[in-house]
Structures are given as structure tokens and as C-alpha cells.
């Protein structure tokens, strides 16, 4: 085996070892690396009252209630479980029913989650606005897009 090939193998092997070490660390801390919990993950966890966490999912259809101009009530769902959220503040532009959202806040009791921050999450789909009108006209518009 030539010296060059030995050096190449040595470098690649070292890289592979470091990479697997880093990935192992990340894999075993994935709950902390993940930015938010989904409602069904929350169901499996023990709820700690007043501990700040983030939950993420879709804003459930027909769940949005405006209590006053800056006070809102809605449900976050992942189609398996849903959580009732209350929020005082300004909602981002993209926030609407059926849209993804990440909520930062804490449980005030076992059922109600009080949000301190609301972030809208958008999906990886991009479509011209004119096509939305065409789809609506022809009846092919999927309600899930909102």
C-alpha cells in the first residue's frame, strides 16, 4: 500500500470516527435538540406546570376564538392529539387555521397552555397566488392548503 493511500485511509477513517461520535451525541440528545414537542409527544410526557416549553403542530380548524383584540384562544393539533392554547399578544401574518405554528409558553393546568410567543411555521410548498384562484374555480383546491 502506497504512502498516499495510507494517508488517505487514515484521514477518511478519522473523519468517520469523529462523525459517528458527533452523530451519536446528537442522536441521544435529540429530545433537547428538537425545537418543539408535538401534541401527541406531550401526551406521553408528564406535564410540568409552569415549565417553559414549545409545542408545535397545526392550528385546528374551527378552533380559533378571538376573545379581545389582543387575546386569542385556539387548539394546536397533530391529528392525534390537541392542546388548548391561550395567547395575549400579536400573532404573525401567516397564522391562521390549518397553518403550522410553534408556540412557546407553559401549561397553567393540565389542559390549558398559556403562550408567551407564537411563531408561524410555513411548509416547503411554493405556489403562485394565481394558481390558487384557478384551483378554487375548478374545485380542485385542497382545504388543507388554506
Amino acid at each position: 500500500m502506497s504512502l498516499r493511500l495510507q494517508r488517505l485511509l487514515f484521514i477518511l477513517l478519522t473523519l468517520a470516527i469523529i462523525l459517528s461520535a458527533v452523530l451519536l451525541i446528537l442522536y441521544n440528545t435529540r429530545e433537547n435538540v428538537s425545537y418543539f414537542y408535538t401534541p401527541s409527544e406531550i401526551d406521553k410526557l408528564d406535564i410540568v406546570i409552569n415549565e417553559t416549553i414549545r409545542i408545535g403542530g397545526f392550528v385546528e380548524n374551527d378552533s380559533f376564538n378571538k376573545i379581545s383584540s389582543s387575546s386569542f384562544k385556539f387548539k394546536i393539533t397533530d391529528e392525534k392529539a390537541s392542546i388548548l392554547v391561550t395567547f395575549n399578544g400579536i400573532l404573525p401574518d401567516l397564522f391562521r387555521e390549518g397553518q403550522g405554528a410553534v408556540i412557546e409558553g407553559a401549561f397553567v393546568n393540565n389542559d390549558i397552555f398559556n403562550a408567551t410567543n407564537v411563531f408561524a411555521k410555513h411548509d416547503e410548498n411554493y405556489m403562485p397566488a394565481s394558481i390558487k384562484e384557478d384551483l378554487k374555480d375548478t374545485g380542485y383546491w385542497n382545504k388543507k392548503y388554506k
Binding site: 428538537s34 425545537y35 418543539f36 408545535g56 411563531f119
Partner: peptide
């Protein structure tokens, strides 16, 4: 790999 605010 993880839940992120950034879309896939």
C-alpha cells in the same frame, strides 16, 4: 432529523 421551525 429534528423538529425545527425551519421547513424541510
Amino acid at each position: 432529523w429534528w423538529n425545527t421551525l425551519h421547513q424541510p
